[in-house]
Design a protein around this nucleic acid. Structure first.
Lengths: 226, 226
DNA sequence: TCAAAATTAATAGTATTACTATGATAATAT
DNA sequence: ATATTATCATAGTAATACTATTAATTTTGA
């Protein structure tokens, strides 16, 4: 990624954490190691006690940063979507041709994640795997409406809206820009998951990437609107 | 639904349960009330102890039917997909025109659920809500590969395959029939969820149903293949 | 019909989780 | 140098997700 990105901080809604994990060494270790640990054992089995042991710190110290592990997950997924959003905006900014722009956007939002050295304590490849496996658990809860009211999902919503706007720019007659945008984002995670666990339910594999599938889906739809 | 359906039983993989809940009155009450309870309080807060109190039975008796609440969820989602599959096969069977057939299939698989009196102890409307909210939790686990090997997801896979085949029947050049089929099924649940909780991320609402969105998406894509 | 078998209920118990509380120690800031 | 803040260690609680055991009830089939 561009060097400019090195100075950019992903801004997370302050209500998600108690103390900003970016503000201390312990906080960064919590983020760094929780990503690895959730990747390894899954969100269900992950506990603050285990994380404390791993980072050689104390369970209660982690509770000073996050109210509970659900909030930590919200932090991680928000960070991921913010990171993707930045890449999207940075890369497509200044592109004049709406079609090329949308094509690029789909590429960024559906490709497999590569390491980004700008954030030394965050392993983006693992984080992407976490998002594939755990993202939906962050909103499929009884508290979703209250948390949504508190702005816990604003980054994700902004991202969908950006993509939706790009879709409309290509074809303003298309009636479902928001639905198509949300389908691309969730659908991409789903296709990546299927690729790894239910190969027969997808046509995406090594040489046939979700990017190609969604690109074809989107453009043939937009070219073919009544 | 047709009266014929009244005699049809949805066959669930026997490994999912310890004792078949269809085989006793208590088993049916477990299914009936767990659907209502998970609908009301969500899967996270749902416990066998609470269910026991509700059905005036004992926690340990429920454990005679299901190893844990995850298995119960697998049972409920399998039943739902089996029920949908039956409607799909029954309704589209004998339809000669592949396009009409696919159109009908999308309608069945993406519409809001209506009550089906054939299964008196199962509230299909609530079950549909459960599937919208909890389905992904049934496979987004560390155990997914092992459970898949044991055939816990066969009904869902068969359903995707049926839809995939119908897509290919309309356009055999289309490269992503399985991906499109899985996108329709998961995407439909997602659009229904967004409709209820993130209205700005979808164009589907009262008068603009997911069915219309997916119908347009699918047919414009299939008409426009290189 | 009645005894054996199967099912269900009641009670108790365990390990783990998801926290909260408190006091002690270490780091840092003024 | 001292006050403030951050971290650590320990302990404790209520709830969860079970398992085990025994008793009561229902079903069944000889």
């Amino acid at each position: 990624m561009d060097e400019l990105l090195q100075t950019v901080r992903i801004q997370i809604n302050e209500k998600i954490y108690i103390k900003d994990p970016e503000s201390s060494n312990l906080g960064k270790r919590i983020i760094e190691e929780s990503i690895i640990m959730i990747y390894e054992i899954g969100f269900e089995s992950f506990t603050f006690k285990k994380l404390g042991e791993r980072i050689k710190s104390n369970e209660s110290s982690i509770y000073r940063y996050f109210e509970n592990k659900h909030k930590l997950l919200l932090y991680l997924t928000s960070w991921y979507w913010g990171w993707l959003e930045y890449q999207l905006v940075f890369t497509t900014n200044g592109m004049a041709d709406p079609t090329k722009k949308l094509r690029k956007a789909i590429e960024i939002l559906t490709k497999s994640t590569e390491e980004d050295s700008a954030y030394s304590h965050i392993n983006e490849v693992f984080l992407n795997k976490i998002v594939i496996n755990e993202n939906s658990k962050s909103y499929l809860t009884q508290e979703v409406d209250a948390e949504n009211k508190d702005g816990y999902f604003v980054i994700y919503q902004r991202l969908v809206k950006r993509l939706s706007t790009m879709i409309t720019a290509v074809n303003s007659d298309f009636l479902y820009p928001a639905s198509l945008a949300s389908t691309i984002l969730e659908g991409s995670l789903h296709q990546h998951f299927l690729k790894d666990h239910f190969a027969s339910l997808t046509d995406c594999h090594e040489n046939n990437h979700p990017t190609q599938y969604f690109t074809q889906l989107v453009f043939s739809t937009l070219q073919n609107t009544p």
